[in-house]
Amino acid sequence: MSIAPVALTCGDPAGIGPEIAARARAALGDEVPFFWIGDPRHLPDGTEAVEIAAPGQAAAALARGLPVLPHPFPRPAIPGTPDPQNAQGVIDVIARAVALAQDGAAGAICTAPIHKKALKDGAGFAYPGHTEYLAALAGVDRVVMMLACDALRVVPATIHIPLAEVPAALTPDLLEATLRITEAGLRRDFGLAAPRIAVAGLNPHAGEGGTMGHEEIRVIAPVLDRLRAEGMDLRGPLSADTLFHAGARATYDAAVCMYHDQALIPIKTIDFAGGVNVTLGLPFVRTSPDHGTAHDIAGKGLADPSSLIAALRMAARMAAARAGR
């Protein structure tokens, strides 16, 4: 039996989600088994769409066009202008994708960008973002964000907080949870039997023995020691500036970083377009392209589908790894 297809959500219909879905199918052909959930009216004119009644029909439909599991919305989409009346539909499509993944009909989910303010204004969406909503649907407390491209996987332990607040946010509890979820994800979703994780220090030269900060000695190293005793392959805390050149990258499967830009500078510098956002710690595989709704260019045929293509490919590969193939 083949792997269940990837469920791709429509995201904000007024953003670039629908058009990059159509272009991803055109570029991929039937290379990646996936289907799109949304309102067929929101796809660009001329899209070769094939309506399906269930995910199981996606693989056959891909040969003819974009497989669409229809989810009717109240209103058509106006590119660049989110319609409050469509907000609930965006939320429902995400829930539907999760339900399909939970019962095994979808092998993974890939989410197109949403516009949080539009969902809040139109449907009272109370979550800070996509990921928190997915975690709530799945009933998990803690997830980890990973950014991945062919050359590098990075996990920022802290994300959208001011740099000044990073040291206080880096608790042993957070680091331990981040490392555990990352390690489990590398095993289950990336097929690595013995994942090697490099851990960056917080300070320049990883603190250089405490002369430029003590977090390495007081917080990071004790957590690493404890988890190493359990058998995890952890290197560090390592000096962040020498962690990302090609020779260093060959020595680990993922780098856990202490703050947003410590992780994002290397991956964006290596691969600006191809970075894929992966959520680890959910009961299903979830990826998303590393960009937003791009309202300014929506509907103009300018949107670049390459990050979505990378996200679909990665979701399918991860689903296969999780299924043990």
Partner: peptide, 27 residues
Amino acid sequence: SDTVFLKAIRGEVDAVVTMYHDQGQIA
């Protein structure tokens, strides 16, 4: 800072003023 170094790589700027050691040194 995650995309500012691309500006230099593309030749759009001649220098990047960074705020802390690893910001520039990583790139």
